[in-house]
Design a protein around this nucleic acid. Structure first.
Lengths: 313, 313
DNA sequence: TTGTTGAAAAAACATTTGTTCAACCCTGTA
DNA sequence: TACAGGGTTGAACAAATGTTTTTTCAACAA
């Protein structure tokens, strides 16, 4: 190949085009060559790195990490926000703000929305602007009650329904029952069956995850210290949809998991769009497992968490 | 003004556009905004320096200097080449190569070309590819003979005429005559008058300049050391069109200038296109003066010379 | 409430950019 | 001399980009 690259000419053209803002036609006629050649040299110049465009912003990493997340786990979308929070609560607030906008764009009339549990989702909903829709239902995917209060501090279903002008269906049951028997009893009730079924037919699910280091899980879950330690010993690394999961995102073989009012990962996957809203160091292991199993289709998280996730195990 | 600049959005768009190569329409629909907004943010981003394009080449300076030259002295065009030459001869060769191409694009059929004098022009012509034109005349603007040889080493007229398939008219006279009387005698000859007149009606002139430090001028000019020193003392800083000029590009008041076979700057300016082809430290002062007086409309030089010129006095 | 303002979407339009293809000009080669 | 191959031009076309106008909608002040 008789490669002879007229760099001086290319530089001149690039200068005229990018620095002086001339049009390609102007450049061609001024230099006295064909416009086609101007285009060719301009493309060559970019390919050879003679001209390079730079994006000067710390926020670029957010986008790049989001891209990497979608690539790595085949997601439909990812949003990554900065992690400038001082504590987990503030982080949840920031992730929630971003997640709100991301989720809104997915919502349409006549949808059924399955909603999970957690402080991040609560924050998300509280910052959501009013966005009335028609014929929308918001359904709890999990029980909603905790030991301490009738309506959980982390329950977001009713608030979301209010913002969307939607019907609100939640399960008047604890997240984790006292006993397996109680769970069985509750689950056989007609209303429960109905709500549960409708949850499975949801168009979109918005969920979060709890790490085991996180204080919220102990505060909310109806498990005592002994049981907690025992389930951890059994391999639990986090909590998803109320269940304690291990590094493969499968349920830990432990009695506490048979007292959970929730749906299994298998049927959860039938929901077409499943958005994970979560961030923080304590949740990385669980998030990684959930992503690896393809349990979610979208994610909203923060830079630090995204970096950890992509760094791998 | 309620300035609120959505940097994260702009970064995302810029990333999609410049790094991922997506089309603006794709970006708009993917993000769920109007295409007009994508364009607006993209422009804003460039204005704010969020995205910057860089041209990575040492040759960029050539173009920038050329721009600066045209700006500074209101030229029609400028070409600046690298100054990697080891000696003045090599520099002349490189400038000549560039000048050749630059000049070719200015030449058309039926033109009359006035040609100056000097090693740079000689180099230019010798590297010129054959480019036959119709009804073209090449005319010396100066005498062509030197003390040492009948046909000067720096005479380029005949060679240029050959390349262009043009009629060649040169003045069979020394650049500088023995005496004012000789000059008068020669100038009154009909043929001289004729050629001289045609030179003044040239469509384009291609000229160079000599600095006083340059060895070529002493070698070629028919002046002895005494005269040389005396003209320098009189304020000469260089040689243009055969004449010794001062810092204002006006003729030095010295007898040697009345023995020159050439044309004055005033009538030279009647030629519509006047291309200066010259470079080298020794010629900077003369070049600056010539440019300042608007004696030329175009210039071809090298980076170092251009820098010196623009740095000012 | 009513009106006003500003931001953005939507649509129509003008311009620029990218692509393709035939014709041409070199240059090297048989 | 004839001929193939690479590269350029010029023209026609398709696609993308930039601009303008109109409309909508939400925020805000009277």
């Amino acid at each position: 190949m008789t490669e002879e690259w007229p760099e001086q000419l290319a530089v001149r053209i690039a200068h005229c085009y990018y620095n002086l803002g001339m049009t390609q036609q102007q450049i061609a006629t001024e230099i006295g060559i064909g416009r086609a050649r101007v285009i060719k040299l301009l493309n060559e110049a970019r390919k050879r790195g003679l001209v390079s465009v730079q994006i000067n912003s710390p926020l670029l990493e957010n986008v790049e990490l989001a891209d990497a997340l979608t690539q790595r786990w085949g997601l439909l979308s990812a949003e990554v926000c900065l992690s400038h929070a001082r504590d987990e609560h503030q982080l949840a607030s920031q992730i929630g703000a971003v997640a709100g906008n991301a989720v809104l764009s997915l919502l349409k009339d006549d949808m059924t929305i399955g909603l999970g549990w957690g402080i991040t989702l609560k924050e998300m909903v509280s910052q959501l602007k009013s966005y009335p829709l028609n014929n929308v239902s918001v359904i709890s995917l999990l029980g909603s009650l905790t030991r301490r209060s009738t309506i959980a501090r982390f329950e977001a279903t009713t608030a979301l329904a209010a913002k969307l002008n939607a019907e609100c269906l939640y399960l008047p049951a604890p997240i984790i029952c006292d006993s397996e028997q109680t769970r069985e009893l509750l689950m056989t009730q007609a209303m429960f069956q109905d709500i549960h079924q409708r949850a499975l037919n949801a168009d979109i699910a918005i969920v979060s995850t709890g790490g085991l280091d996180s204080s919220t899980i102990r505060e909310v879950a109806m498990v005592d210290e002994n049981e907690y330690r025992s389930v951890v010993k059994q391999g639990a690394i986090g909590n998803f949809l109320g269940y304690f999961i291990d590094g493969n995102a499968t349920l830990v073989d432990h009695p506490v998991n048979s007292r959970v009012i929730g749906i299994s990962g298998g049927v959860f996957k039938k929901i077409p769009r499943r958005v994970m809203v979560s961030g923080g160091h304590s949740k990385v292991k669980a998030l990684a497992a959930i992503l690896e199993q393809g349990l979610v289709t979208d994610i909203v998280t923060d830079v630090a968490t995204a970096r950890e996730l992509l760094a791998g195990p």
